[in-house]
């Protein structure tokens, strides 16, 4: 999807966070020099085009009480990986599910994240997920998280040198 310089300026401002006021798009517009209605129209277009998935929260799972979090990876034959991925993604306790390129030092190709309040609950869920997705015979690794060092979404539009700095324009 093509973005104009104005779209990029708007997204760079928005990336710092939506203003937390009852009419956030009016304030956002004031900051970038656009009327509220135009801000909303541009954001709707970006959302409908898939550039913005949604406007909402990014939570820290640990602070919410989800202290146990495991990344689970499997080495799945190519012909089976799609069906297994779709089954995993349908489980309520699986938050993210990806197929990734294999690496010579890391032959796994199916990844998912499983959160829970305690480690034992996550371990049970991992067994359940393996069974329900037909993955019990596939080599698997479970990597529990220990510490989180950075959980800020990467800055894209407002990072130094990002395309957002192309300057103002239509």
């Amino acid at each position: 999807m093509e973005l104009s310089a104005t779209d990029r300026r708007l997204l760079a401002e928005l990336e710092r966070g939506l203003p937390l006021v009852p009419r956030p798009y009016a304030l956002l517009g004031a900051r970038v020099g656009l009327p509220e209605a135009e801000v909303m129209a541009r954001l709707r277009r970006l959302r409908d085009g898939g550039v913005v998935r949604r406007f909402g929260l990014v939570v820290r799972h640990r602070r919410l009480g989800y202290r146990a979090n495991a990344m689970v990876v499997w080495d799945v034959p190519e012909v089976r990986v799609r069906a297994a991925g779709l089954r995993l993604a349908a489980l309520p306790f699986v938050t993210l599910c990806y197929r990734r390129r294999r690496h010579p030092a890391w032959p796994y190709n199916l990844y998912c994240m499983i959160h829970g309040r305690v480690r034992a609950a996550v371990e049970e869920r991992i067994e359940e997920a393996s069974r329900l997705a037909g993955l019990r015979s596939c080599p698997r690794r479970v990597l529990f998280s220990r510490r989180c060092f950075k959980q800020t979404g990467a800055r894209y539009f407002s990072a130094p040198g990002a395309p957002a700095h192309a300057g103002p324009g239509p």
Binding site: L11, L14, E15, V51, V52, R53, L57, V58, L64, T152
Partner: peptide, 23 residues
């Protein structure tokens, strides 16, 4: 309430979730 959650560190951000690959 959202501001308080941000201040408490429960949330990292309130804003857009981009699909970078679409861009």
């Amino acid at each position: 309430r959202i501001r308080r959650w941000l201040a408490e560190g429960l949330l990292t951000r309130f804003g857009p979730l981009f699909d970078i690959e679409k861009l």
